[in-house]
């Protein structure tokens, strides 16, 4: 068996894989953040049917493995609709919805943590619901939620590695290709691992900085 050496091309492949992983993560996390928070606000204001429906759906998503969801979307949905999905589309859809589910539960807890008394004050002073969310609930819920959100982000970044199994050429898939060509699994997977670690660590550091800024004047609980 011939051991092929590493080439410049391999570096390009890994860089491209890393780009796909990061892009997929950033895009789906952002979409999940928006959808999950919106659902949490609907629930907070007890919007009748829609709120319950969303709650049930997101509960299902949170309590099943991402890999199963991914297979369901990539293999199951096309079989049902007779319409093939591209791997990237299926991956984006699954990860966005999955992230939304986790964001939803974090956001609900954050909104519930904001003191009722100040919310009543804001209502008595005539703030509309939109103004209430924007100026009172939102900023404080975010201060409560930022730590779990940073944790979630780090986790979701790693979860993107699952999309390699449906053929998306992300960092893991790039490692796989490289491994098959060079037959140096230890070197390849160490390198891939370090790249994931570097990305996750950067995310944590950025998140912590953001958290410190947000919490500078966050409610001492129970004020």
């Amino acid at each position: 068996m011939r051991h092929a050496g590493f080439t410049w091309h391999d570096g390009a492949l890994l860089a491209q894989g890393l780009g796909v992983s990061l892009g997929l993560f950033a895009g789906t996390f952002l979409i999940g953040l928006v959808l999950g928070s919106a659902a949490a606000v609907l629930r907070h204001f007890r919007v009748p049917t829609l709120g319950t429906l969303l709650h049930t759906g997101l509960e299902l998503l949170r309590n099943s493995p991402v890999l199963v969801q991914l297979f369901l979307v990539f293999f199951g949905v096309p079989a049902l609709l007779h319409q093939p999905l591209t791997p990237v589309f299926a991956a984006g859809l699954t990860l966005s919805a999955n992230t939304a589910a986790f964001v939803y539960f974090i956001a609900v807890a954050g909104l519930d943590a904001v003191g009722r008394d100040q919310v009543e004050a804001a209502r008595a002073f005539g703030l509309s619901r939109v103004q209430l969310v924007r100026h009172i609930l939102g900023p404080q819920a975010l201060a409560f939620a930022v730590a779990p959100l940073v944790g979630l982000a780090v986790n979701q970044l790693q979860v993107t590695s699952l999309v390699s199994v449906i053929g998306v050429v992300d960092l893991t898939k790039a490692g796989d290709i490289l491994n098959l060509r060079t037959l140096r699994p230890f070197a390849v997977w160490t390198l891939v691992g370090v790249l994931y670690f570097a990305a996750a660590k950067t995310l944590t550091l950025l998140g912590n900085r953001w958290e410190r800024r947000l919490r500078a004047h966050a409610a001492p609980l129970g004020l």
Partner: peptide, 24 residues
């Protein structure tokens, strides 16, 4: 005016006072 003040803890004193006059 509330018994337990019900101020907005994440806003400065000034902002607590000016919020509703500006928004509402």
């Amino acid at each position: 005016v509330f018994q337990l003040f019900n101020l907005y803890p994440h806003m400065t004193v000034l902002r607590n006072i000016t919020l509703a006059p500006e928004l509402v």
